[in-house]
C-alpha cells in the first residue's frame, strides 16, 4: 500500500548491501577469538537473502557488524555505496529477543513512533506511519497497550512494525522467530514475505532453521562454523507466490532443503584447523 511513496524516495542502489572481506576477532582478557574469518557477499536492492549456519557460527556477530553495532576487525560493510561506520540511517533491525528490544515503559504506538521522532519526521506523517505499520502487521487494535501486555508473537509483530515504519532501505532480521511457537512462526514468516513484496526493501534474514531459510529467501547463504566464511550461495528458484503448505510440498523445495542441509552439515566440520573459539 505504501510501497509507491516509499520507493519513490529511495535511490536505485540505496538498498545495495556489500560485505567485503569482513573479519572479526574478539580480544578478551588473555585470549583472542576469531569469530568471523573472511566474509564477502552482496545483497542487491530489494532482494531477500537468508543466512543459515550451524549455531555458534558467528551469525549474530556478522549481523552486528553489518548493522554498525560492532566495528569489524578487518574488511568493510557498504550500504548503498557508503561505508558503514555506525548504525546507518537507512537500516532497521529486528532482534530475536522481542521482549528485550521493545521499550517496556512505552506503549506500542510510542515504541513505533520513537525512531521516527528521532528522525524528525513531522507529527502528522508520524501518526500515519504508525497507524499504517500497525495495520500491516495486523495489530490495529493495540496502539495503547504496553508491550508486556501482549503475547510473544504480537510483541515481535510490534518490533516488525517499528522497523517498517522507519522506512528502511535494508531490514536486518536476527533469528526473529526463534523464540515463538510454530503456529505464530508460520504466520510471521508469511507476514515477512508479504511486507517485503509490498515495500520493496532489501531484507537480510538470519536464521538457523533451514526450512525457514529456503521458504523465505530468494537466496540462501550458508555459513561455515566459527571462524566463519561463506560456504555456498544457493539461489532459491521457487515461485514468488509462496504458501506454507503447497510451497513446502514442492519437490524443488525438498531438493533445496536437502542441499542446504548437507551444506550445513558439512559446515560443522568445515574447519579442521584447531578452532580458537571452540569453547562454546
Amino acid at each position: 500500500m505504501t510501497s509507491t511513496d516509499v520507493k519513490s524516495a529511495v535511490r536505485a542502489d540505496s538498498g545495495l548491501l556489500d560485505v567485503r572481506g569482513v573479519q572479526k576477532t574478539y580480544y578478551g582478557s588473555g585470549r583472542t577469538v576469531e569469530a568471523v574469518r573472511d566474509l564477502t557477499f552482496s545483497v542487491g536492492t530489494g532482494e531477500l537473502a537468508c543466512i543459515v549456519g550451524p549455531s555458534g557460527a558467528g551469525k549474530t556477530t556478522l549481523l552486528k557488524c553489518i548493522a554498525g553495532l560492532l566495528p569489524p576487525t578487518g574488511g568493510e560493510v557498504r550500504l548503498g555505496g557508503a561505508r558503514v561506520q555506525g548504525p546507518p540511517p537507512g537500516m532497521a533491525v529486528v532482534f530475536q529477543e522481542y521482549g528485550r528490544s521493545l521499550f517496556p515503559w512505552m506503549t506500542v504506538a510510542d515504541n513505533i513512533a520513537l525512531p521516527l521522532k528521532q528522525k524528525r519526521t513531522p507529527k502528522p506523517r508520524r501518526a500515519a506511519l504508525v497507524a499504517e505499520a500497525l495495520e500491516s502487521v495486523g495489530l490495529r487494535d493495540v496502539p495503547h497497550a504496553y508491550p508486556w501486555q501482549l503475547s510473544g508473537g504480537m510483541q515481535q509483530r510490534v518490533a516488525i512494525a517499528r522497523a517498517i515504519a522507519y522506512e528502511p532501505d535494508v531490514l536486518l532480521m536476527d533469528e526473529p522467530f526463534a523464540a515463538v511457537d510454530a503456529q505464530t512462526r508460520a504466520e510471521l514468516e508469511d507476514l515477512t514475505r508479504s511486507l517485503w513484496r509490498n515495500l520493496g526493501m532489501t531484507v537480510l534474514f538470519v536464521t538457523h532453521d533451514i526450512d525457514e531459510a529456503v521458504y523465505l529467501g530468494q537466496r540462501v547463504l550458508v555459513l561455515s562454523g566459527s571462524p566463519t566464511v561463506v560456504m555456498e550461495d544457493v539461489a532459491v528458484d521457487l515461485p514468488a507466490e509462496r504458501e506454507q503448505l503447497s510451497t513446502r510440498a514442492l519437490p524443488r523445495f525438498a531438493e533445496l532443503r536437502a542441499h542446504v542441509y548437507e551444506q550445513v552439515q558439512r559446515a560443522k566440520t568445515f574447519h579442521t584447523a584447531p578452532a580458537a573459539g571452540a569453547s562454546a
Binding site: 552486528k64 548493522a67 555506525g86 532497521a92 533491525v93 529477543e97 528485550r100 528490544s101
Partner: peptide, 14 residues
C-alpha cells in the same frame, strides 16, 4: 540496561 535494548536504540539513531 539490557544490551538488546541498547542495541535497538543505537540502530534507530537514539
Amino acid at each position: 540496561i539490557d544490551d538488546v535494548l541498547a542495541d535497538t536504540a543505537r540502530c534507530y539513531g537514539i
